[in-house]
């Protein structure tokens, strides 16, 4: 079964089509890169797929559930990590895990064993009882990702998860993404880093609300007869009429 199916999905604010009739499928277990310049409509599209926003037209299902009527069911089956850090700064690491685990209905016993595992894989045993506010950004982001997949969702949405993070931590972060994908979680990720785009199984590039290209990184490079993703992105995005915000 496909993880995400979009057909002609559109979101309009007044005259402005933020998302203009996009169609694509995402396979279960795939790492799907969702690229586009600032203001191209990535975040809007993602918010629709996460059940945070109603589309104006078109169809889409996420984990088999309809984005118009079954948003709460979608929410049960996805994880979401926004570009803003979204854990509670003034809760400790463990309290954050416990809180979000509880919200997703993970049982207490599971929360306890899984959070112990998680803390040790992240190597944060010493920090487990400290407030999240004191952690360095890279660790915060890794923690946020771990929390987003803590309830073992079918799909995880990552909105620019590595913004402002150093290259080493980014590599570690992508290792975590691969692990999650290997465990069968579909990863839907937006990014501005083209090296990260290369890590994806397939990528789509949005320009002015439309999906202008969708394929594996290798074939996209071939198609635009270049050897760098930067160039692919540049060729697509420079045709954009919308000014970046």
């Amino acid at each position: 079964m496909k993880a995400i199916i979009c057909k002609g999905l559109t979101k309009q604010f007044g005259d402005f089509k933020a998302v203009d009739s996009i169609s694509f499928d995402v396979e279960q277990g795939e790492i799907f890169g969702f690229l586009g310049a600032n203001g191209a409509g990535k975040t809007t599209a993602m918010r629709i797929l996460c059940g945070l926003s109603y589309p104006t037209a078109g169809e889409a299902t996420v984990a088999g559930f309809d984005v118009y009527r079954q948003q709460e069911k979608i929410k049960k089956n996805i994880g979401y990590m926004s570009q803003k850090f979204s854990l509670y700064d003034n809760l400790t690491l463990l309290e954050n895990i416990e809180f979000y685990g509880g919200v997703y209905g993970v049982s207490r016993a599971d929360i306890r064993t899984r959070s112990r595992e998680l803390v040790s894989t992240l190597g944060l045993e010493k920090e487990a009882g400290k407030l999240v506010a004191g952690l360095p950004l890279g660790w915060k982001q890794k923690l946020a990702f771990s929390v987003a997949i803590f309830h073992r969702p079918r799909i995880v949405f990552l909105d620019e998860p590595t913004g402002g993070v150093d290259p080493v931590t980014r590599r570690q972060f992508w290792d975590m993404i691969y692990e999650a994908a290997a465990a069968g979680i579909t990863v839907f990720v937006t990014t501005h880093y083209m090296d990260e785009a290369e890590y994806c199984n397939r990528i789509s590039v949005m320009v002015d609300g439309r999906v202008e290209a969708l394929d594996t990184p290798a074939r996209l490079k071939q198609q635009f007869s270049t050897d760098s993703m930067d160039e692919v992105f540049y060729q697509l995005a420079r045709g954009a009429k919308r000014s970046a915000d």
Binding site: K75, I78, S82, K84, F85, Y88, Y104, G105
Partner: peptide, 14 residues
């Protein structure tokens, strides 16, 4: 303001 509400809204919490 912090953005945590969005994180809450994306959870299945009633």
């Amino acid at each position: 303001e912090i953005g945590t509400i969005e994180q809450i809204n994306v959870t299945p919490i009633q």
